[in-house]
Amino acid sequence: MIKIILGLYAPTKGEILINGINRTMYDKKAYFEKMSAMFQDFVKFPLTIRENIGISMVDNINNMPVIIEASVLGQAHDFINELNRKFDTNLLIGWENSEDISTGQWQRLAISRSFVREADVMVFDEPTAALDAKTESEVFENMVNKKTERINIIITHRFTNIKNIDQIIVIHEGKVDAVGDHDFLISNNKIYAELYDIQADNYKGFIKEPALAGELLK
């Protein structure tokens, strides 16, 4: 469904309308420029950290204020500044004077890359799967609270950070089962309520300190 919205796939039947106009009537290049997506299988470019973040909008690949702001939003700024060459660090072992970083750090770079591209529609597909709970919460907060007019679409199986999302779509066995905000779904959708309660209980089981558990579940 997301890849059809992004224009990567064409529907086999029916049509995709944008402001009442069939998507095929729009210029494809202009349409793609309005979209940004971070998928689970994000690319690890054998480039510098600066280039890895800025490559999603080539005009900004040397624009350090934009890249630094994106790294802060993607929770990558702190670990980057701990590296000897910081944003000029070459990544992927095998290249001259290069360094390797953890999967979670790569994911933070991919999230930061998404923030560089000021698209009208931004898709995040399981964007925090490799992150710890605290960093995950901070990244979700940045996604939701960044003041823009764009549409953010977040695909996730982890419910603890989506309570402030404007609209949640519950998909079950390939079909839309329910649509609403968190409070509505907790009260009116059995699938959502059960899965949320299971994850909430799991967090409480792993975290002994009640105050911290409560903070993560806000």
Rank of each mutant, 00 (worst) to 15 (best):
D183K: 06
I68D: 06
K147V: 01
F39I: 05
I165D: 05
P210D: 00
Q199K: 09
E138K: 15
K134R: 15
L73C: 14
F115D: 00
K163E: 01
I171N: 02
V123T: 15
E173H: 10
D27A: 11
K134T: 15
T24A: 11
F39W: 14
N142Q: 11
E141P: 03
K146Y: 10
V121G: 02
M57Y: 14
F42A: 10
D125T: 01
K13V: 05
V72S: 00
Y31M: 08
V58R: 07
G174V: 05
I49S: 05
L217K: 03
A129D: 07
S102L: 02
R150G: 13
I162T: 00
I18V: 06
W106L: 08
F32S: 14
E136D: 15
E194S: 13
F159W: 03
Y196R: 06
L185S: 07
G180Y: 15
N90F: 01
K44E: 12
T24M: 03
Q107C: 04
T12C: 04
G180H: 09
L83P: 04
G7I: 04
Y31A: 07
T89F: 05
E33K: 05
N145Q: 08
L17G: 11
I49E: 06
I68G: 05
I153A: 07
G14Y: 05
F206E: 11
I207D: 08
A76V: 10
K3E: 13
A110K: 07
E215D: 09
A76T: 15
I49A: 00
G174L: 06
F39N: 09
P46R: 12
K3H: 09
E136W: 14
I80M: 08
I61D: 02
D59V: 04
L195C: 14
I151F: 07
N189W: 10
N189G: 06
K13A: 09
D197L: 02
L216I: 02
L17N: 13
G214A: 01
N52G: 11
E209I: 08
I68N: 06
R150E: 13
D78A: 11
E82L: 15
S102C: 03
L217M: 02
L185T: 00
L91V: 09
K13T: 11
G180N: 15
N202C: 06
W106I: 08
H157Q: 06
D59E: 15
V66H: 09
N52H: 13
I53F: 11
